[in-house]
Simulated scan of single mutants.
Amino acid sequence: MSRSQIYYLIGLGLLIAAPLILAFLLTSLSDQPASDQNGKNNQNIYWGVDSASNTDNNLYQCVHDNFGEPEVWGRYLGDKENVSVGLDSDEINNLHDNDVRLLVIYNHFNDATGYDHGVEEAEQAIEYAEDLGIPDGVAIFGDIEPNFPVDTAFMKGWYDTLSESAYEPALYGVFDEGSALIEAYKAADEELRENTVVWTAYPQNEVTAKDNAPEYNPQGPDNAMVYGWQYGLESEQCNIDTNLFQDEMLDYLWNP
C-alpha cells in the first residue's frame, strides 16, 4: 500500500470518527450538574410555610390539602397580642410527628435600634427557647419588619448575645436593595455578616402550592448566609406564608 493510500485511509477514519467524538463530548457536557443561582451544584430546595396561628390539626390539614406536605414550618416564640400565638409543646409534637422541621422566630420588639436593646431582646429570645426545650444549635430569627427603625448596633447586640449562647444568631426581614435593613446589615462587621443566618422576604411572588413554587431566587446581602426565602405572603385558604429553603438551613432548624 502506498503512502498516499495510507494517508487517505487515516483521513477517512478521522472524518468518520469526528462526529462520534463531538457527540460524545456534547453528551458529557450535558450530563454535568447545573449550578443554581448561588453557584452550588445539585442544591436541594425545601418547601415550607410559616404561621402566626397555633398549628393545630385543622391548620396542618388545611396546608396539606391545599398546598402540599410542608418540610419546614416557621413558628413564633411566646404570644404577642394581636400579632402571633406562641409555639407550644402540643404543636411541637404534632409537627415533629409529621416529620416537619421547625424554624424558630422571635418578634417581641418593634424597634431594632441600640446595642443594649439587641442584647435584651436576644436574652428574652433565649429564655423562651430554653423554656420550650429547644435544642442547642437551633437558630433564632429576629423578626425585623419593614416599618421598624433599625441600626447596626441592634444587630450587633443580637449577634453577640446569641453567638455566645447555645443558639445561633439569625435575622428575618425584607432585604431589598436600598432599605434601612440591608444598609444596616452591610455596615456590620465581617464576623456578623458571615455568621448570621438570613431569611429574606424579598422579592415577593404570589403564594403557591408546593408543586408550583418558583425557582429559588432570594435577594439579600452579598456573601451572607441567605438560606431562606419567604416568597409568598398571606394565603387566602390557610393562615400561612410560603417559603423555600436551601440545604444549609436544615442545620439551623429544630429537626424531628
Rank of each mutant, 00 (worst) to 15 (best):
M1L: 15
M1N: 14
S2T: 10
S4M: 15
S4H: 14
I6Q: 14
I6F: 13
I6G: 12
I10D: 14
I10C: 12
L12A: 14
G13T: 15
G13E: 15
I16E: 15
I21S: 15
L22Q: 10
A23Q: 14
L25V: 15
L25R: 14
N41R: 12
Q43H: 15
I45W: 03
Y46K: 01
G48W: 00
V49C: 10
V49I: 12
D50Q: 12
S51F: 06
S51H: 08
T55C: 06
N58S: 10
N58P: 09
N58K: 11
Y60I: 04
Y60M: 02
D65C: 07
G68H: 07
P70G: 00
V72Q: 05
W73Q: 09
E81Q: 09
V85T: 06
S89K: 12
D90N: 07
N98L: 01
N98Y: 03
D99R: 08
D99W: 06
V100I: 04
V100A: 00
L102I: 06
L103F: 01
I105F: 00
H108S: 00
H108I: 04
N110L: 03
Y115T: 04
D116Q: 04
G118S: 04
E120M: 01
E121Q: 10
E121I: 06
A122L: 03
A122R: 01
Y128P: 12
Y128S: 02
L132C: 11
G133Y: 08
G133I: 06
P135S: 11
G137W: 05
D143E: 08
E145L: 07
P149L: 01
V150W: 01
T152G: 03
T152L: 05
A153N: 00
W158E: 03
W158K: 02
D160W: 08
L162I: 02
E164D: 12
S165A: 02
A166V: 05
Y167T: 04
Y167V: 09
Y167F: 05
E168V: 06
A170S: 01
Y172N: 01
G173C: 09
V174N: 13
S179W: 03
A180G: 13
L181V: 02
E183I: 11
A184P: 00
A188Y: 10
A188F: 10
L192W: 11
N195M: 10
T196R: 08
T200M: 08
T208Q: 10
A209S: 06
N212T: 02
A213S: 12
N217K: 12
Q219V: 05
D222Y: 09
A224Y: 05
V226D: 13
G228A: 01
G228D: 05
Y231I: 05
Y231E: 06
E236C: 11
C238A: 06
I240C: 10
I240Y: 09
D241R: 04
T242P: 09
T242E: 04
T242K: 07
F245E: 02
M249H: 15
D251K: 14
W254E: 05
